[in-house]
Simulated assay, not measured.
Amino acid sequence: MTRATLERRQVWCYLGAVLGGLIVGTLAPGAGHAFEAMVWPVIGLLLYATFTQVPLTTIAAAFKDTRFLTAALIGNFVILPLLVWALVQFLPQDQAIRTGLLLVLLVPCTDWFITFSQLGKGDTARATAVTPLNLVVQLLLLPLYLWVMTGGQFSAVFAPRDIWPALVVVVAPLIAAGLSELWFRADPGRERARDLLGWGPVPLLALVIGLVAAAHVGAVRDALGLLPVVIIAALAFLAAGLALAKIMSVIFGLPATQGRTLAFSFGTRNSFVVLPFALSLPAGWEIASIVIVMQSLVELLGMVFYLWFVPHALFPARGPRT
């Protein structure tokens, strides 16, 4: 199996991981705390493997195409957050559900976004260039978004003493990946190490999803009634991402390949980066992490539709002039 084949079939890997995790958690209900403890180091490895595929030292390259950059930043960090805030107003008055959706829908993806852009005939070079910038901006703005959209309850829910492990799990791999990037660039022969790490995100994310399902099988069972709410919210967001990509592409006069890249950027979210923050929430907030896993699965299934719709219907290739 090639890495491209693995990435094309990742949706089924994650669905199998959920099913396997639920079965294991049901058969071993007393092992929930052990499974939850295992999630943290696996997430750290996942983030490190993923960040090494995002060349952080190429952030400057993202500034070369100002039209595409402006469209991507305005869409991801101005318009979509406003749409997300409007969307959660229609959800049940459950802070755990709302917090989970806010966490996952407010931050653009930095891993499979590039893969789907490539598979969907987008501009992979621009996707790669803008991804590290998206990562830095979202880490800076997410606390502000949460503080504003939760009515100031952000500091009460995300107490520093509870959230610092999540910060370490995100920041440490980011620093390690930055140092690794310098090491890779020092010798072209070391790129093989980066390529080997590129095999890690799909199986590691599948393992994380399976461990979360196994650790919180009771919460998953209790949250089945919320599944329609999460599905509707996730589908509404996916539809909004398509519409916004088309509008921004027209406004900024972007070619079809860049419009496709915008669509995949707006439609994919950074679930694995915010999952540690959801897992660090106090007892009684387990639903937030379940919501994030649910949303990511709906999103990945939605990407199957995106891969057909975006290049063939939304941004079709223009034929030769006659």
Rank of each mutant, 00 (worst) to 15 (best):
I175N: 01
P132N: 09
L103G: 00
A193Y: 15
V148C: 03
L135D: 06
E181V: 03
K121P: 02
A193S: 14
R126I: 02
A206V: 08
L205S: 15
L139I: 12
R98H: 08
M149G: 00
L197I: 05
A129V: 09
P132L: 05
L119H: 07
R190C: 14
S117C: 13
Q138E: 12
W112H: 03
T110S: 05
A96Y: 00
L139H: 09
L207P: 01
W164Q: 04
G152C: 09
A172W: 02
F113I: 05
D162G: 10
L211Y: 08
A96K: 01
G210K: 05
T124K: 08
V170G: 01
F158D: 11
D94M: 10
I175D: 02
P188Q: 11
A156I: 00
A176Y: 01
F113A: 09
L182W: 11
I163D: 00
V136W: 04
A176V: 03
A172I: 07
L182S: 12
Q138S: 12
D187N: 15
V202G: 08
L141M: 11
V217A: 15
L144M: 14
G198C: 11
R190K: 15
V137P: 06
P188K: 14
P203I: 06
L101D: 04
V137I: 15
V168E: 01
V157N: 00
I97S: 03
A129E: 13
A127W: 06
R192K: 14
V170P: 01
F116K: 04
A129Y: 13
D187C: 13
G122E: 07
G100M: 01
K121I: 02
R192H: 12
G200K: 09
L207E: 04
I114L: 11
Q138K: 12
L133I: 09
G200D: 10
P132G: 09
Q95P: 01
T115S: 05
V170E: 03
V212R: 00
L105R: 01
D123V: 10
I114R: 00
Q138N: 10
R192L: 15
V170D: 01
V168L: 13
V171E: 00
Q95K: 07
V202C: 10
S180R: 06
L101C: 02
W183K: 08
G178N: 07
L102C: 04
A127R: 04
